[in-house]
Write a protein that binds this DNA or RNA. Structure first.
Lengths: 202, 202
DNA sequence: GTCTATAGCTGGATAGAC
DNA sequence: GTCTATCCAGCTATAGAC
């Protein structure tokens, strides 16, 4: 009689937690086993090696990150409302998994090939080109100011993601605590959207 | 006869390179020794342990990061020009050390106490409160729109730093190469400043 | 499927010659 | 100060009993 499903899921959940907290190099198989409430040997029984387990977790994390981006970008709204929606839903998604971006970005820095594995066969890969085109067209039509589409997209992403990546620094420099930080981020859904829309007003 | 100075500096330079590329956990003392062109034992002769060496490198990196921020914030200019100057000089500084922010943010995530060591006796610590006050006052005077000072500051930092932190992702998703990336960042000095100033126009 | 025990290696740290 | 040789802890991974 097997708890296969349960155990596998437990392992993945534990691995996700430990890997994203400590990174590939810093994580210990023992930590993951403890977190999952099972034995170290079981990890190798289900997933052959640390690398394999990591790749599984990492790809899922990257996939979710890109998926969220895709969903936001592909909504069928006029550009300005779409931007508001992107900001809202992206920040909301990050609030649920606040340490994922730093984890992903850090591992991508060290092994940029990791991204390439996502290209293959992934429908989650965001259709950036279409969104960039949309910005360009809206600029031509005078719906928004004419701006470099890539720069604008970078600005949007920056302001959504950065606070999560820099959380300890932000808390340290400003002196705010966890509760205030949560509030700050919550406020940002509105603030960032307004900020962007004002900046690109025609 | 000693190459003390030279060797010490060589070690620090090598350690900086390896640590910021691979992080504390991922770096190997052997890598650092190779990079410095010396023997592994020498590292322990000059700096007792891996941790000590790391702390030295890390503190210097964090210090420089905060110093740059301080310098930009403390210039004696009217707020709008100051913002333009902050963006310009901060991005320029990051172009010279593009991997430092991710390195620092990542290690801070894993050991937030590392920041506290900077508090002590560091005049480089940026006088954030004064800058926030300046924003509030400018809002009251109608020089800029009334906005949450912290949110505005976060926006400024986000747009400057994020592209460096997310470099591999940006390159992967947009498909641009190294040269185009450099150009993109160069352009940002202007673009981001204009973007911000437009957004906070009264 | 799950556990204990252990093999085998990697890497930080030290001893000791020069 | 610098090097070679080596120790030893910690870790991944596997063998083998249940």
């Amino acid at each position: 009689m097997s708890q296969e499903r349960n155990t596998e899921e437990q392992i993945i959940a534990a691995a996700k937690k430990i890997f994203s907290a400590k990174g590939l190099a810093g994580a210990r198989m023992q930590d993951i086993a403890d977190e999952a409430g099972i034995n170290k040997a079981m990890l190798h029984y289900y997933y052959r090696s640390k690398e394999k387990l990591f790749e599984m977790v990492f790809n899922e994390a990257l996939d979710r990150l890109l998926q969220r981006l895709s969903n936001a970008i592909n909504t069928n709204l006029p550009l300005t409302e779409k931007i508001r929606e992107i900001v809202r839903s992206y920040i909301e998604g990050l609030m649920e998994n606040p340490h994922v971006p730093l984890f992903v970005l850090n591992e991508l820095q060290q092994q940029p090939e990791l991204l390439i594995k996502q290209f293959r066969s992934k429908p989650s890969f965001p259709n950036i080109q279409q969104f960039l085109m949309e910005i360009a067209v809206a600029g031509e039509k005078g719906l928004i100011k004419k701006v470099s589409p890539i720069q604008l997209m970078l600005n949007i992403l920056s302001m959504c993601v950065f606070p999560f990546v820099a959380k300890p620094l932000v808390k340290g420099v400003t002196g705010i605590d966890e509760v205030q930080f949560k509030l700050l981020v919550e406020e940002r859904k509105q603030f960032v959207a307004d900020f962007i829309l004002t900046a690109i007003q025609p």
